[in-house]
């Protein structure tokens, strides 16, 4: 196990390094003068000089790369062009909002999906299944932002039940992040974007749960439980469901990594101030340092969560032999 863990961690570092390098290449090899992409014309002469030196933009590409890696290790991502703050500070402001939105939606989606999937496995065949499965597939097929638009038009613009965007009402000022978190206004604004994501995400756990449940229900220990005379419901929920949860748990970890970056469109539709929206705005306004920082953060979360999912799978499932090569 320890060897497996070390191997995975080494692999993680390697993938992170490649992704980091790819990002460097992507942002440097675009057409035009690369230094212009990191130095806004609006900066004062002194700031320009300081940044030029700090990021080694006056040196060769190879040296720039080494400086870039060193800065990254120190958590230094540069200055945003437009907002005049450090990229790290802007990302730190946005990240909690994305994490809250993602966690709330994922938990709601998986809670619903697991129960509904188990129920569908329990009630196999018939009308319920004929309606439920195509609907679950349909929610995965619909563009996320379109689901958001439908909810916005129906529940915010036309009925006024929910706010139309942002994280706080106009004029409302939250002193600190903690104060914002406990304000009702914040959670009120969270409902629609979270509902959109939940709708979009629930299809996967539902279908996965149902499929693995049906597989588990054929196992010998289930036959045994039935022979003991347990009720069908008790067999399904207490014996089968526990064992079917494993792939769902893995999907949850993968989903967490993927949605931090995948929230881009939902955050844009609802003007939710998270990482995805930061990235979109930075890219749209050619704020390259901020765009690079946001992209790196999203990619890091994805890579780390992929590893976590892999390790969790190996740790939870005794059948996965960690010594074996995949």
């Amino acid at each position: 196990m320890a060897r497996h863990l070390l191997g995975r961690l080494g692999h993680l570092v390697l993938v992170l390094w490649v992704v980091t390098t790819l990002t460097f290449v992507m942002f440097r090899l675009m057409p035009g003068d690369p230094t212009l992409n990191f130095l806004s014309p609006s900066f004062s002469q002194e700031t320009r000089a300081a940044l030029l030196k700090g990021f080694g933009l006056d040196r060769s590409l190879g040296e720039q790369y080494l400086i870039y890696l060193r800065n990254l290790l120190h958590g230094e991502l540069g200055q945003s062009f437009l907002q005049g703050k450090s990229v790290v500070a802007l990302l730190a402001e946005a990240l909690p909002n994305t994490i809250i939105l993602t966690l709330v939606s994922l938990c709601a989606a998986y809670a619903f999906g697991i129960v509904a999937g188990a129920f569908l496995a329990f009630r196999r065949g018939g009308v319920v299944e004929a309606v439920a499965i195509p609907s679950a597939l349909a929610t995965r097929a619909a563009p996320e932002f379109w689901l958001g638009m439908l909810l916005l038009a129906g529940l915010a613009f036309q009925t006024g039940l929910f706010p139309t965007g942002g994280a706080l009402s106009p004029g409302a000022e939250a002193g600190s992040f903690g104060a914002m978190l406990i304000s009702r206004d914040y959670w009120w604004h969270l409902i629609l974007p979270a509902l959109t994501l939940t709708l979009y995400l629930q299809g996967l756990p539902l279908l996965l749960m149902r499929a693995t449940m049906l597989e588990v229900l054929n196992d010998e220990f289930i036959v045994m439980a039935r022979m003991k005379g347990l009720s069908r419901w008790s067999v399904v929920m207490r014996h089968a469901a526990r064992n079917a949860l494993l792939p769902v748990a893995t999907a949850f970890a993968l989903g967490l990594g993927a949605s931090v970056g995948g929230n881009v469109v939902v955050e844009t539709v609802f003007a939710w101030p998270g990482i995805g929206r930061v990235l979109v705005q930075a890219v749209q306004s050619a704020d390259y340092p901020l765009a690079q920082g946001a992209f790196l953060l999203i990619a890091f979360v994805l890579v780390v969560m992929n590893t976590v999912a892999d390790l969790a799978y190996a740790a939870l499932d005794p059948r996965v032999s960690v010594g074996a090569q995949r």
């Binding site: 992170l16 490649v18 990235l279 765009a291 990619a299 994805l302």
Partner: peptide
């Protein structure tokens, strides 16, 4: 494949579109 799976899809597309 492992490296490619570490690149977030939509953000990658956005950045690429903006840079090209």
């Amino acid at each position: 494949a492992d490296i490619v799976l570490g690149l977030p899809f939509l953000p990658f597309m956005l950045v690429l579109a903006a840079l090209t």
